[in-house]
Design a protein around this nucleic acid. Structure first.
Length: 892
DNA sequence: CACTCCCGCCAATTA
DNA sequence: TAATTGGCGGGAGTG
């Protein structure tokens, strides 16, 4: 602020303008400046800072964020007052962006703008996620601090956390070495292992997360004390120059950061509430439970969480408990850690530049390869075995037979789901209680940890993944709207069971032969296009993606990431291979989860219920709103996840009909669409029926879109385009299905104006490309679902899917998209095709996409970002990506 | 009012 | 001793 003021006020006083500065600087006299890089204060003096300079920097870095925020605000408003907010706001923004933004921003430093999270994003934007092997960028704290316009102290906060994850290492005084995310998966793996040792017992012992967590505290005291810290430290040290780093004592921030991450990795639900984390951390460290200490710990956790959020590893959520909402964070980073990063790298060229985005892209490929993919943790990459195993299981079930190779994927998916379900059910039998208990504990509808529980504790890959997803449901998204409708969830189950096993009523059925998965569940439908390996993976991912990335920073497109990023990577020399690995992993995980969640979800009993009780949750499901907030922001992704999750919840929590938010859905759509876009391959759609809340709107999400992205460079646009379409129910009524390829146009329904705007911006390009809104339609099948009213009859839903399936599937199977039915996006569909075999690998392909991807976002989002890039010498691409990420977020 | 978490004092550590 | 690091908690911004 001071700086700004100065600039404004007195543009240059060489002297420090104000005493304040001096005081702040404390001892910094001009003299010192020369010696040391100078502290922040120095810079200000120089005036170099002129507002513009700072502004530029900030703007470039932050603007996206800023925008996002604004957008968010808008979004909210829109909900209430769609019209007003939309136009005016959008206009204003635009204007601002164009010319005057700087000034405005400058003027208002608002606290948020100075947040550590934003600062961290800016910081991260300066370095490639996956720096080339050779490149090593050293980070000068002073320099960075000055560039970012913050005190060095703040940089320490960031660097310490990054260091705990080995993203950077301290080389010397004032010098850090940027490693990027190459080792992130390894680091996380180590942390996970360490965490399991420390906390694992607790976790395993208790089904309930909460209980576990609580217990943790107790147990931790017992177990933890001794070794914990050490190991962690060790991890961190390996790469870097340990010498200097170690010296300092524990550096609580680093340790806390690692422990905090461990909690996530160990947690089945992947959700950790701040208070629990604080308790655990305190306990470990010390017995004292001073209240003040607790507060301090929480403050620190916020600091850490902000950085982790910027890295796209966690996102803020709220867990509803008995008492009420509790702040919590959900792990959205990779869950599984391939043992070999290398493999990953090989497969997935792309990296995700964005922290947020990580998930994405690579995963798909991998998944495709393995089939099951992500489900199995390590195996995913390598193991065919698991897949097979799953298949076998599946095979037993009805669905499997149909599937073919490609289908196999789908089938696998299904099978997996089925398996999971079975396991779950079995487990549930036991656990059910637990889950229920949890739920109960959770109380009201909101929180639901249970899902996590569901997943099998054991090894089953599936289980693992699923669990996390399960979590989603529990957690409430930041967004208010979230509440997921329980009812729908049942659907998820369907897929697994029904499809595979078939069963029931139909709910989820897979279409025979077809790649699609139908979730009968009332409100949500997931259609999966191309079956191939990719498909499954995609599907899942899509869902996951939706949840995850949604917008987010990932802008990069986390989910889709694979493609996009890969392309990005390509474009950017730096990362290609390596980068992606992590991303892939993440994606894998996420994806797997999502899908799983969908599938797994329901406990047998519930599903039917859900269906039966349309009113309750089901409707809600529709709402899934995605977070519209910031695309970039983590929240969005979550929302998506939530969506996926919701169904489950619904089932479980039928009660919670409340959840649904009408408003939200749209946003969610957006995110989804993005994600979808990302995933090009198969046409997968999620259809969300409108629930009461949504009343009027129907949403179709294409799970995969992006095909174009993948295949066509030109398509870039498409990739961007969002698959989701929102359609007013009324409209739908007339039409069987609506799919707009690009999310923008059509539907964007009004309400969203703001959203739509954002979306449009982002997507606009894509939309253009894809423009033709596709429609999915087709067959009646869709229609029914769409039909506004659809009660949740379980049966019905299934039917539709069936109908669809044939068409879709076929088309899908071939290329996925081909069939008219499916997707609208010409691009995606056409191109998609599947590369199944190659798909993943081809970096070459990706690049184009990525680029496109970037461009679009960039173009949409911010030109500015690009400009800024200048600074980034390093990999343009990388930097660009980052920017994009940021930008992307902003647009959203 | 509760949640966040910025800010920067000041101590520990290092150079 | 000066500078670098980073623990820590007051208290302000937000919703």
């Amino acid at each position: 602020e001071n700086i700004f003021d100065r600039s404004k006020m007195a543009p240059k006083t060489p002297i420090k303008n104000e005493p304040i500065d001096l005081s702040k600087q404390k001892g910094c006299t001009p003299e010192r400046n020369p010696i040391t890089p100078v502290k922040i204060t120095d810079r200000p003096q120089p005036d170099p800072w002129t507002p513009t300079a700072n502004l530029k920097i900030l703007v470039s870095a932050a603007s996206p964020d800023m925008r996002d925020r604004e957008k968010k605000k808008e979004l909210f408003r829109p909900i209430e007052n769609s019209e007003q907010s939309d136009t005016p706001d959008s206009l204003q923004y635009d204007i601002v962006d164009d010319s005057t933004v700087d000034e405005f921003e400058k003027q208002r430093p608002s606290r948020k703008q100075k947040s550590l999270g934003l600062l961290c994003q800016k910081f991260l934007a300066r370095y490639p996620n996956y720096p080339m092997s050779t490149e090593k960028s050293t980070i000068s704290l002073d320099e960075v601090a000055s560039i970012l316009g913050v005190e060095r102290r703040r940089i320490y906060d960031i660097v310490n956390v990054l260091e705990s994850l080995h993203l950077v290492s301290r080389v010397a005084k004032n010098q850090y070495c940027w490693h990027g995310r190459h080792n992130l998966s390894q680091t996380l793996k180590m942390l996970q292992e360490a965490g399991e040792l420390q906390y694992g017992e607790l976790m395993t012992s208790q089904h309930k997360d909460q209980d576990l967590e609580y217990k943790f505290g107790e147990r931790k005291k017992e177990t933890i004390p001794d070794s914990q810290d050490r190991p962690l430290l060790d991890f961190s040290e390996p790469d870097c120059s340990s010498a200097s780093a170690n010296s300092r004592k524990d550096k609580s921030l680093r340790i806390m950061s690692q422990k905090f991450v461990m909690l996530f990795l160990v947690s089945k639900t992947k959700i950790v509430t701040l208070d629990i984390a604080a308790k655990i951390l305190i306990e470990e460290t010390q017995d004292t439970v001073d209240h003040s200490k607790f507060k301090t710990k929480v403050r620190r956790l916020y600091d850490i969480a902000n950085v982790l959020t910027s890295l796209g590893l966690i996102k803020k959520v709220h867990v509803t408990e008995e008492r009420g909402r509790k702040p919590a964070f959900k792990w959205i980073g990779p869950v599984e850690f391939p043992e070999k990063t290398d493999e990953l790298r090989g497969y997935s060229p792309t990296s995700d530049p964005l922290p947020g985005t990580q998930r994405g892209a690579s995963v798909q490929y991998q998944s495709s390869a393995s089939g099951k993919q992500s489900f199995t943790r390590h195996a995913s990459f390598n193991s065919a075995q698991p897949c097979e195993a799953t298949r076998r299981k599946v095979s037993s079930e009805p669905n499997s037979p149909h599937q073919e190779k490609q289908d196999g994927n789908c089938s696998k998916m299904i099978n997996l789901a089925a398996v999971c379900r079975q396991k779950i059910e079995e487990d549930t039998g036991n656990k059910a209680c637990d889950t229920e208990a949890i739920l109960n504990s959770a109380k009201n509808s909101n929180i639901t940890l249970p899902l996590s529980l569901l997943p099998v504790p054991g090894d089953s890959d599936f289980c693992v993944n699923p669990l996390p997803q399960a979590v989603f449901p529990v957690v409430q998204a930041d967004v208010p709207s979230f509440s997921l409708p329980v009812g729908i969830s049942s659907q998820a189950s369907h897929p697994s069971t029904p499809a595979a096993s078939k069963t029931e009523n139909g709910k989820p059925t897979l279409v025979p032969n077809q790649p699609f998965l139908c979730f009968p569940s009332s409100s949500l439908f997931m259609l999966c296009g191309g079956l191939q390996e990719n498909n499954l993976s995609e599907l899942l991912p899509t869902a996951g993606e939706l949840g995850n990335r949604s917008a987010e920073a990932q802008a990069a497109g986390p989910p889709p990431v694979c493609q996009k990023r890969s392309s990005h990577e390509c474009s950017s020399p730096s990362a290609p291979g390596d980068d992606e690995e992590p991303a892939v992993k993440k994606q894998m995980l996420e994806h797997s989860f999502l899908p799983l969640s969908l599938v797994v979800p329901k406990k047998p009993s519930e599903s039917p219920k859900a269906d039966s009780s349309p009113g309750s949750g089901c409707s809600a499901a529709v709402h899934l709103e995605v977070d519209r907030f910031d695309p970039a922001s983590p929240a969005a992704p979550e929302a998506a996840n939530k969506e996926s999750i919701k169904p489950l919840d619904c089932q479980k929590q039928e009660k919670q009909s409340e959840n649904k938010d009408p408003d939200e859905p749209p946003p969610g759509n957006e995110h989804i669409s993005k994600e979808n876009a990302n995933q090009p391959f198969q046409p997968q759609y999620l259809y969300v029926q409108p629930t009461a809340g949504l009343s009027s709107f129907n949403f179709l999400f294409s799970a995969n879109q992006a095909p174009g992205a993948i295949s066509l460079a030109a398509n870039q646009m498409p990739s961007l385009s969002v698959p989701c379409v929102m359609v007013p129910s009324a409209a739908l009524a007339s039409f069987p299905l609506v799919c707009s390829p690009s999310f923008t146009s059509p539907l964007s329904p009004a309400p969203d104006g703001s959203f739509s705007a954002a979306a449009s911006t982002n997507f606009s390009v894509s939309s253009l490309a894809s423009t033709p809104p596709v429609f999915i339609s087709t067959t009646a099948v869709v229609t029914p679902k769409v039909s506004p009213a659809p009660l949740v009859d379980p049966q019905q839903p299934p039917h539709p899917p069936l109908h669809l399936s044939p068409v879709l599937t076929r088309s899908c199977s071939a290329v996925k998209l081909d069939s008219p039915v499916c997707m609208g996006h010409p691009v995606t569909l056409l191109k998609l095709q599947q590369p199944s075999s190659a798909p993943l690998t081809p970096k070459s392909i990706r690049p184009a996409h990525h680029e496109a991807f970037f461009k679009t976002p960039g173009s949409l989002g911010d030109p500015v970002a690009w400009k800024k890039n200048e600074g980034n010498q390093i990999r343009n691409a990388s930097s660009v990506q980052r920017r994009l990420e940021i930008s992307s977020t902003s647009p959203d």
